[in-house]
């Protein structure tokens, strides 16, 4: 597991790369990611194999965008126990029988659990890949172009910046505490209250100073995003290619068709 500040910083660093995917406009990337998520959630709860061709999208983004697989795994890792918990609950509640190839019967819940895990992992990977290539500013500019009200975008941008700040201040406080409490494991219980209070006050005052700096540089009611040029042919091709591919995956059971073509059986 890793500290959230490190994860946020790594996302920002990754988004500064200059690869083919990074050059695609954030709005087009956002639309493709959104369509991917919508199609993934539209699959039947037992459609494990039919969902597999969708893996191509996150895999291609990771390779083309040069996103380290370790980064994806480390960022997703904290959420995995929660997904597994839901998946296992699914397996226990869905009691209908499912006959496997060998004649062994299992609860259908295990199949839907597998589908749930696959669905969640693919969705999270797609979102992370989008953020790691477009960056948070890319997300904000995509939302702005989609005419999402300025208030929500500003709120989101400030929240993101505030998380950064909270983590930084927490880091400073914990470092100062550790330096003055040698040999002590963690933070002693009686210090939790004062430290949390200090954390809040320091973060609040720092946030105020940053806000003042923003005001001094002409911030009004909204944060103006970095407008990119108009979409080029490659951006539009990107959308049409991927959306077309996702729709194909959704409408036709590609693995089944492949199996029919190769071994000539649909069963």
């Amino acid at each position: 597991m890793r500290n959230p500040r490190g994860a946020i910083r790594q996302i920002e660093l990754l988004s500064l790369k200059n690869t083919f995917v990074h050059r695609i406009k954030p709005l087009q990337q956002f639309i493709v990611t959104l369509v991917f998520i919508l199609i993934i959630t539209s699959f039947d709860q037992y459609s494990v194999s039919q969902m597999l061709p969708m893996l191509l999208y996150p895999a291609v983004i990771i390779v083309l965008g040069e996103i380290p697989l370790r980064f994806i795994i480390r960022t997703i890792l904290p959420v995995i126990p929660l997904i597994i918990l839901f998946a296992i609950a699914n397996a226990f509640f869905d009691k209908s029988e499912w006959v496997l190839l060998s004649g062994v019967t299992i609860s259908a819940g295990w199949i839907s659990a597998l589908a749930l895990v696959l669905r969640s992992l693919m969705t999270m990977t797609a979102i992370l890949s989008f953020i790691a290539t477009a960056g948070m500013n890319g997300l904000f500019s995509a939302l702005e172009k989609l005419k999402i009200p300025d208030f929500f975008i500003t709120l989101l941008a400030f929240t993101f910046r505030y998380i950064h700040l909270l983590m930084e201040e927490a880091g400073h406080i914990i470092r100062a505490y550790r330096l003055r409490s040698p040999g002590q494991e963690g933070i002693s219980f009686q210090n939790w209250g004062p430290l949390a209070g200090q954390w809040f006050i320091r973060s609040y005052r720092r946030a105020e100073r940053i806000h003042s700096a923003m005001l001094c540089r002409g911030l009004s009611e909204k944060i103006h995003q970095n407008y990119h040029d108009r979409a080029k042919l490659v951006d539009l091709t990107w959308i049409f290619f991927w959306c077309g591919y996702f729709i194909l995956c959704r409408l036709f059971p590609i693995p089944l068709l492949l199996s029919k073509v190769t071994i000539g059986t649909g069963i």
């Binding site: 988004s15 500064l16 948070m136 500013n137 720092r206 002409g218």
Partner: peptide, 19 residues
């Protein structure tokens, strides 16, 4: 307290963009 954007260029452009 003054630098809050992802890159130096974005930070320098923050003021002119607001103008």
């Amino acid at each position: 307290d003054q630098l809050f954007c992802p890159t130096v260029r974005d930070d320098i452009a923050f003021g002119p963009r607001n103008m």
